[in-house]
Design a protein around this nucleic acid. Structure first.
Length: 294
DNA sequence: ACCCAGGCGACGA
DNA sequence: TCGTCGCATGGG
């Protein structure tokens, strides 16, 4: 007997030069692109967002249940953006699974449109090396200057009004490995410059292969990343969560430490543990939005 | 002007 | 192993 199948997977169609994706749930672009997980997206005056990832420039807009990717193709959607926006993961099911704790539920109301983007591993690692002891606006500035100075031009058509920084891809580890601390000075990364170079060199030299860290045991992956000077437990956790799809990772920055102490008595609810990384981002966003103080 | 930030490494006890 | 301190810089 026939029955109407519930649409679980988003459906994408080409419409003129754009790709329109329907059946997209739990995606708020402002929350997702400006919640401190990625640093290369900007809000345009018309309400759309523009950013650069995987060497491509993208302009994206959203309506309830609909995501529109402008000036791109279904092929590029399948190659990059479907995974980037984590569209094959059922966030509704995750929200349902972790609900039940009154405090966590409050955080979820602030943040239930956040998705964990699947960023490039090297970009995530390098970005979170830069993030240490730093404010989000300044992290963005450093990454902008790094991309402008050392990144290669994006492999996409670039609209006229595009900010300079988005015209360049994130510089590869290979390209950065050849630079010196002095050459990085204009980026104004401070004491982090030497950390960026050590990371770039260990990856360019093959001592660390980021693609291997997607599926090996977590503690092995953590140890490997922490071979880099300037990568400790927090940065390693961020690289694994945001760059290598390890959603059980739980980076503890100052905001999360405050929230855990103040709101959760030190530990997440049991039901949240398999999705700790996603829940972490909900809590991070909630804590910052409410200026949570001890 | 001042505080502090999606921390980490070095150092001493 | 654990607490403390300096680090470069600049946004709010």
């Amino acid at each position: 007997m026939l029955h109407v199948e519930k649409i679980k997977r988003p459906q994408a169609v080409q419409s003129g030069g754009n790709v329109i994706i329907s059946g997209v749930r739990c995606l708020d672009l402002a929350q997702t692109l400006d919640c401190g997980q990625a640093f290369r997206w900007t809000l345009l005056s018309d309400g759309r967002w523009r950013g650069t990832a995987y060497g491509r420039l993208l302009t994206v807009g959203a309506a309830p249940g609909i995501l529109t990717l402008y000036d791109t193709t279904l092929a590029e959607y399948e190659e990059i953006w479907r995974s980037y926006f984590d569209l094959d993961r059922d966030y509704t099911a995750i929200l349902t699974a972790v609900q039940g704790d009154p405090v966590l539920d409050t955080a979820l109301e602030f943040a239930d449109g956040i998705r964990i983007l699947r960023q490039e591993p090297w970009e995530a690692l390098c970005s979170f090396i830069i993030s240490q002891n730093n404010h989000v606006p300044r992290i963005k500035g450093i990454i902008e200057r790094l991309c402008i100075r050392f990144g290669r031009p994006v492999d996409s058509p670039v609209p006229e009004d595009t900010p300079e920084a988005l015209r360049s891809a994130f510089p590869s580890a290979d390209d950065l490995a050849r630079r010196t601390v002095d050459e990085l000075a204009p980026v104004r990364a401070g004491f982090r410059a030497k950390y960026i170079l050590d990371a770039a060199r260990k990856i360019a030299g093959g001592q660390i292969v980021l693609e291997q860290l997607f599926c090996i045991p977590l503690d092995d992956a953590r140890r490997k990343l922490m071979e880099i000077n300037g990568v400790g437990p927090k940065v390693a956790e961020c690289a694994l969560l945001f760059g290598m799809g390890r959603i059980e990772c739980f980076p503890r920055d100052v905001w999360i430490k405050r929230a855990m102490e103040l709101l959760f008595d030190g530990a997440l609810p049991e039901a949240a543990l398999p999705y700790a990384g996603i829940v972490q981002q909900y809590i991070f966003h909630y804590a910052r939005m409410t200026k949570l103080k001890l």
